[in-house]
């Protein structure tokens, strides 16, 4: 079952002087069962795009297909709840939305809202807490008493507890420390590899794109200007520079070495690939 956009336009404040076309003629089909990064400058339409996936926004024109649902301007799917149970959307800075007295209650809120019996909701919540790397002692704490990074994990656990098939994350690691952010990306990768979840991540961090994602969707001025495998995307650095994103460190090194006379032929993605290629050339 697909997640696809067909000729989608979206206008904020249509028919007013402030009308603003945030998405223009989007044709896009995400590959299911993969991790896809959505990148692009601020204001390019990334967040607007992902908010269509659980019908928070309806397209002004065109059709959005989400699993077995069809979303159009006139056709808001009935029973949005079951759509939102299958497509979990984590907003930017979700920790601002924690509100319950205890962390356990906060994570249980999602499953309970979807009519899961209390005892089962508790099991789901405790599992989700463990998945995001927080131990049982956190369950009865107040979400106000933990650090920002821990709050972020609790918020993500809240979505994991409803066990969606598709997980959509809007800048999930912004503001986390390096290890917290690495742990978070590894969690998403595990959910993808072991649980078969389709993962869509809006990000500005090119290190995450190159290290953890299978595909990349590039947006600019409300349009999708590129949709490729990550390995292919990073073969041409001009593509990356065109949208004012930073090159991943690996590519900076690779380019500088190429300029200095190195001759790499093989594609490379991870640090070990680069180390191996350098070592081969030096020892040749």
């Amino acid at each position: 079952m697909p997640i696809a956009f067909e000729k989608v336009n979206f206008k904020y404040a249509p028919n007013t002087p402030f009308a603003y076309e945030a998405l223009k003629n989007i044709d896009l089909a995400f590959e299911m069962g993969k991790v896809t990064a959505i990148i692009g400058p601020t204001g390019s339409g990334k967040s607007t795009l992902v908010q269509h996936l659980n019908a928070l926004l309806l397209p002004s024109e065109g059709t959005v297909l989400v699993l077995d649902r069809t979303i159009t301007n006139k056709h808001k799917p009935k029973e949005l709840k079951s759509l939102r149970q299958r497509v979990g959307l984590v907003f930017q800075f979700p920790e601002y939305q924690l509100f319950e007295e205890t962390i356990l209650k906060d994570i249980m809120f999602g499953p309970l809202n979807f009519k899961v019996p209390e005892a089962q909701a508790k099991v789901l919540a405790m599992n989700a807490l463990k998945l995001v790397g927080l131990d049982e002692s956190f369950a009865e704490k107040s979400p106000l008493d933990i650090s920002g990074g821990q709050k972020r994990r609790v918020a993500i656990a809240g979505i994991l507890a409803i066990d969606p098939d598709v997980l959509v994350l809007d800048e999930p690691t912004a503001g986390l420390d390096p290890q917290g952010s690495k742990a978070m990306m590894e969690l998403f990768l595990r959910l993808n590899k072991e649980n078969g979840k389709t993962i869509l991540i809006v990000t500005h961090d090119m290190e995450h794109v190159i290290n953890y994602c299978d595909n990349v969707v590039v947006m600019k001025d409300g349009e999708v200007i590129n949709h490729q495998r990550v390995t292919d995307y990073f073969e041409r650095k001009t593509q990356v520079e065109d949208i004012q994103m930073n090159l991943p460190q690996l590519l900076l090194f690779k380019e500088a070495l190429l300029d200095g006379g190195f001759e790499f032929k093989q594609p490379m993605r991870y640090l070990e690939d680069l180390a191996e290629a350098i070592s081969k050339e030096i020892k040749r």
Binding site: L252, F253, A256, L257, G260, G261, F262, L271, E272, L274, A275, E276, I278, S279, E281, I282, K283
Partner: peptide, 28 residues
């Protein structure tokens, strides 16, 4: 460190430009 594990020991390990220069010298 990954290069060190492969027997290539660099004097500079922090500054990108100097590392690249050192590697290019080793190669030549």
């Amino acid at each position: 460190n990954a290069l060190k594990r492969r027997g290539i020991v660099l004097k500079e390990t922090l500054d990108t430009e100097r590392m690249v220069a050192e590697l290019c010298l080793l190669r030549s």
